[in-house]
Design a protein around this nucleic acid. Sequence first.
DNA 1: CGTTACCCCTGGAGGC
DNA 2: TGCCTCCAGGGGTAAC
Length: 275
Amino acid sequence: MPELPEVEVSRQGLIPHLCGQRLLGAVVRTPRLRHEIPVVLTSRLAGLRLDAIGRRGKYLLLDCESRAGGGWLVLHLGMSGSLRLVPPDTPAQRHDHVDLIFAQTVLRLRDPRRFGALLWHEGSPVESHPMLAGLGIEPLAAAFDGDWLYAATRRRHGPIKPLLMDSRLVVGIGNIYAAESLFRAGISPLRRADRISRVRYRVLAQAIRATLEAAIAAGGSSVRDYVHSDGGTGCFQLSCAVYDRGGEPCPSCGKPVRVTRQAGRSTYYCPRCQR
DNA sequence: CGTTACCCCTGGAGGC
DNA sequence: TGCCTCCAGGGGTAAC
């Protein structure tokens, strides 16, 4: 489920409940997700205070007293991961792989497909972690604009949509928000990246920003539900204009939304509104 | 160097 | 009812 907005909403929802709280330990029920889960976690975390929760792309970064001999939990939700806060001693269900135990509550990671990741980093700035070091620009950062996109795509012959989803270029944009942003900008997902004008990249950068911010705002309204229910919806998304609407009328012109496949992923777009 | 293919894994939907 | 195939919001890595 999670693209950047869902991860950001999770981050904002967890902060008031967890920051400043001290970890009692961790329970790891599954030896590996995408990677091995460090065995050290079960003992290493005990006594550390969670100082802050950051985000880099779709990674959540839990600062566990990193400046005082602790380290960082680096968490990725993959395709099917979700986080929830449950009372202590709540029985774990299928696919509940990891618990981070606090005095008052338990942060529980569920991930049926196990494409997620939980890593531990200490001894150097978390940005230098191998999973983070090669990541691209944050799409909500001030530096991300049409001029940046234009400059970054000069030698890119491939279609724009898979490029938007390439985290080495720009982070956080997954299959849904790539489709929705391109629709909003009126740009075809099939268009070669180096054949999009500077002016249209300005429109696209603004569309990406607006789409992500709207999704975050929409998710924000359900943060309370997410945090307190243990059957969290995990479904923060706004209704989509084109994503998953193949064959349905384009909300703008009525022509059927077209579906194709790019780099192994489904792509939805309006062939009339998007050029 | 840029781009694509494959793989990791489970579960739900739909065809037969 | 069961069994099969295909699809799914990600991304690291190998190969072209």
